[in-house]
Simulated scan of single mutants.
Amino acid sequence: MSIDAAAPRRPHGTDVAVRADGLTLRYGRKTALDGVTLALGTGVTGLLGPNGAGKTTLLRILATALAPDAGSLRVLGHDPLTGPGRLAVRRRLGYLPQDPGFHPGFTAFEFVDYVAILKELTHRGDRHAEVRRVLSAVGLDDQRRTRIRALSGGMRQRVALAAALIGDPDLLVLDEPTVGLDPQQRMRFRELFADLGEDRAVLLSTHQTEDVMSLCRQVVVIDRGAVRFSGTPAELAGLADGRVWTSDAREPGALASWRTGTGLHRHVGDPPPGAQLLPPSIEDGYLMLVDLSASAVDGSS
C-alpha cells in the first residue's frame, strides 16, 4: 500500500505540530479532561487508555470539533480556539472520528468527493483525481462505485480513512482507524501509517498495543482525563521491567495472569522470590501504569 501516487510531499516543517497546555473539559459534574498537556511532532504518536479515559474527547478538541473549558492549544502554528485559526487548521487537517456519519446512499467515491468539496477542492478534474488517489491508497479501487450500505464494516472504515487523507493533510487525527479490519488489512494499514508519519504528525488512538509497538515513535497514555505517561514504546514497556514472570500454575496474587500457548502461565505484577522473569512488553507496561493510576486515585479518595 502506497500513498505516493500524485501526492505532493512536504518538507519537514515545525518540530511541534500540536502543543496543548492544561486542556480541561467538563460535562456537568464529570471531568472528561483534567489539565492535559502534551506536544506532538512529526511521526506517529500512539494514544492509549481505557474506555472512557478521555481519548476521544481529546481527539475531538485537536480536530476542532470541540472546544475546551480551559487551557491553551496551538495546532500547526494556529490557535483553533479562534475563528480564523480554526479555519486555518481545518484546511490542513485530516480527521477520522469514531463515527464518520456516512450517508448509506452515497457510493464510496461520492462520499469522499463530498468531503473533498468541504475541504475546498473546487476544480472538478483535480478533485476527482485526488479522490481516486486516496481510495487507491486504502485499497478501494474496485469498490469506489459501491454504495456505502453494501460495504462491509472494514471497507467502510477504509472509506473514512480515505476521506481523512484528502488534500494530503499536515496533521492526521485518527480515532480507532483499524477497528473492524482483519489482520491482513491491519498490516497493510501499518505500512500506510508509517509512510504518512515520515513527514507529518499522525495521532493514532488505538487499543491495539502491537500497532503502537510497530509504528509509533511516541506513545501517550491517558486515564481518568489526565496524561499518565508520555515517552517511547520501549520506555512504556520498561515500566514493567522485573514485574513479568512465568510459571507452571496461575498466580492468584498477580495483576494479570493467563495460560499461554506453550502451556505455561504469564504473570504481570509483583513476582515471588526466585520467579523466572520475562522481558516486558508494551502491554505489560500499560497494565502496570493503569493499575498504579487507579491505585493512586483510590488511595486519595
Results as ranks from 00 to 15, higher is better:
57 T>C: 06
33 L>M: 07
166 I>F: 05
186 R>V: 08
185 Q>E: 14
15 D>F: 02
202 V>Y: 11
285 G>V: 05
301 S>I: 13
199 D>E: 14
293 S>C: 03
86 R>N: 12
269 G>Q: 10
157 Q>H: 12
200 R>G: 02
246 T>S: 13
66 L>I: 00
20 A>N: 07
202 V>T: 10
223 D>A: 13
231 G>H: 08
89 V>D: 10
113 D>E: 15
228 R>V: 12
165 L>K: 04
235 E>K: 05
277 L>F: 07
126 D>A: 15
96 L>N: 10
266 R>G: 01
120 E>M: 11
22 G>L: 01
26 R>G: 09
167 G>V: 03
151 L>S: 07
47 L>Y: 00
225 G>R: 03
212 V>E: 10
122 T>E: 14
244 V>T: 06
194 A>L: 14
256 A>K: 09
206 T>W: 12
232 T>P: 02
201 A>D: 11
155 M>I: 05
22 G>H: 09
27 Y>Q: 12
282 I>D: 01
53 A>E: 08
262 T>I: 03
124 R>T: 13
274 G>Q: 08
91 R>K: 13
3 I>F: 04
210 E>I: 07
123 H>G: 11
94 G>I: 07
66 L>M: 12
149 R>G: 00
126 D>T: 14
39 A>L: 03
131 V>M: 09
51 N>E: 06
40 L>Q: 06
62 L>F: 06
135 L>N: 07
238 G>C: 08
66 L>F: 03
175 D>K: 03
49 G>Y: 02
30 K>A: 14
297 V>F: 13
277 L>R: 12
91 R>C: 04
127 R>V: 03
298 D>G: 04
190 R>Q: 09
103 H>D: 15
115 V>L: 14
264 L>K: 14
143 Q>Y: 12
81 L>K: 04
153 G>E: 11
44 V>P: 03
261 G>V: 06
118 L>T: 05
294 A>Y: 08
103 H>I: 13
39 A>M: 02
127 R>Q: 09
9 R>S: 13
138 V>P: 00
205 S>Q: 06
217 R>V: 01
262 T>C: 03
56 T>R: 07
173 V>S: 07
286 Y>M: 07
237 A>R: 02
109 F>Q: 10
179 V>A: 15
246 T>K: 03
262 T>K: 10
79 D>G: 06
63 A>C: 08
192 L>D: 05
193 F>M: 12
140 L>V: 12
55 K>A: 06
66 L>N: 00
155 M>G: 01
186 R>W: 04
15 D>L: 13
109 F>R: 14
122 T>G: 05
197 G>H: 11
285 G>K: 02
230 S>W: 00
100 P>V: 07
187 M>W: 00
141 D>N: 12
79 D>E: 11
124 R>P: 05
279 P>N: 05
51 N>R: 02
256 A>H: 13
204 L>E: 05
